[in-house]
Amino acid sequence: MTAGPVVLAATAERVPDTDWSAASVKSLQLGGGEAYTASLRYRGTKVADIENDGRGGTPIVHWKRGNAATDHRAVWAEWVSAYNELNKQDEWFEPEYFAIVSLIDEYEIAKQLRRDSKRFIPVLVKGANLRRDGQYALIRGRAEDPRMIEAIRAKGEVDRYWDGENWMTL
């Protein structure tokens, strides 16, 4: 593992490092939950497919075949253990579940933030937690415009804004 822990850019979730990520997330809301598929990536390379049928339970990880799969499983198990040490509130459930969900949340929220920041400035009100509250506000304008940022700062209701890549503190 690389040096850590670090904070993910979009969700501000603490993770051991940024070696692991989710990508290609496809989801569907069902009556009993959310079904999804995604790819699990290690240092940018797809090493497994993840699926959850939306009926509860831990997502299933289908590792790619070959000698590297065994190594990836061992490194993933270490990462999940380190993730649970950082996020004690999540360890009561299946250890892998919240680690996977945090990576999927990061992917989906970052994707939405990138889309929204083309026309708006995403902002978080004081004390808000994106993963807990699940939402942010939008202000028409561009984060590159210093007058907009100064106007947001002057109102005093917001403590962070998305600059297109990271949450910036006011």
Rank of each mutant, 00 (worst) to 15 (best):
Gly54Lys: 00
Trp162Met: 11
Thr11Phe: 01
Glu85Asp: 09
Tyr83Ile: 01
Met1Gly: 08
Ala23Leu: 06
Glu165Phe: 14
Glu34Cys: 12
Arg43Ile: 03
Ala22Asn: 03
Pro146Cys: 05
Val15Phe: 02
Ile152Tyr: 00
Gly66Trp: 06
Asp19Ile: 02
Glu144Ile: 11
Phe120Arg: 09
Gly141Ser: 05
Trp76Val: 04
Tyr161Ile: 08
Tyr136Trp: 10
Leu170Met: 12
Tyr107Gln: 14
Glu157Lys: 14
Ala99Val: 07
Met1Pro: 12
Gly156Arg: 04
Ile60Tyr: 01
Thr70Trp: 08
Lys111Trp: 12
Gln112Leu: 09
Gln89Met: 14
Ala3Trp: 11
Leu124Lys: 11
Asp116Trp: 06
Ser102Gln: 04
Val123Glu: 02
Pro16Asp: 08
Leu113His: 04
Ile109Gly: 09
Gly156Ala: 07
Gly141Met: 02
Glu165Ser: 12
Glu91Met: 09
Thr70Leu: 09
Gly127Leu: 08
Ala3Met: 08
Asp19Gln: 15
Val25Gln: 02
Val6Leu: 11
Arg131Glu: 10
Asn129Ala: 12
Leu8Gly: 01
Leu30Thr: 00
Met168Asp: 13
Gly57Leu: 00
Gly141Thr: 02
Asp133His: 04
Arg55Gly: 00
Val25Phe: 07
Val125Thr: 12
Trp167Pro: 15
Gln135Thr: 11
Trp167Asp: 13
Leu124Gly: 06
Glu13Thr: 09
Gly33Pro: 00
Ile100Cys: 08
Gln89Ser: 11
Gly54Asn: 00
Asp163Leu: 06
Ala10Asn: 04
Gly156Asn: 01
Gly44Tyr: 10
Leu113Tyr: 03
Ala23Gly: 13
Trp20Phe: 05
Thr45Cys: 12
Ser117Cys: 15
Gly4Pro: 05
Arg147Met: 07
Pro146Asp: 01
Tyr83Asn: 01
Ser102Trp: 03
Arg73Cys: 06
Gly57Met: 00
Arg132Ser: 14
Glu34Asp: 07
Ala9Phe: 15
Arg131Asn: 13
Glu13Tyr: 01
His72Asp: 09
Asp71Met: 13
Pro16Ala: 07
Val25Met: 05
Glu157Gln: 15
Glu108Val: 13
Ala68Glu: 12
Gly4Met: 07
Gly134Met: 04
Glu51Ser: 15
Gly164Val: 10
Leu130Pro: 10
Gln112Ile: 14
Asp49Ile: 06
Arg147Asn: 15
Lys126Cys: 13
Ala154Lys: 12
Ile100Thr: 08
Gln89Phe: 10
Ile152Phe: 01
Phe98Glu: 11
Ala82Trp: 05
Gly54Cys: 00
Asp19Arg: 10
Lys126Glu: 07
Gly127Cys: 14
Val7His: 15
Asp105Ala: 14
Asp105Glu: 13
Arg147Ser: 15
Tyr136Glu: 08
Asn129Tyr: 05
Asp105Gln: 14
Lys111Asn: 13
Asp49Tyr: 12
Ser102Thr: 14
Pro16Phe: 09
Trp162Leu: 12
Thr37Trp: 02
Ala69Cys: 02
Ala151Arg: 10
Trp92Glu: 08
Ala154Trp: 05
Val80Ser: 02
Val47Gly: 11
His62Gly: 03
Arg147Ile: 09
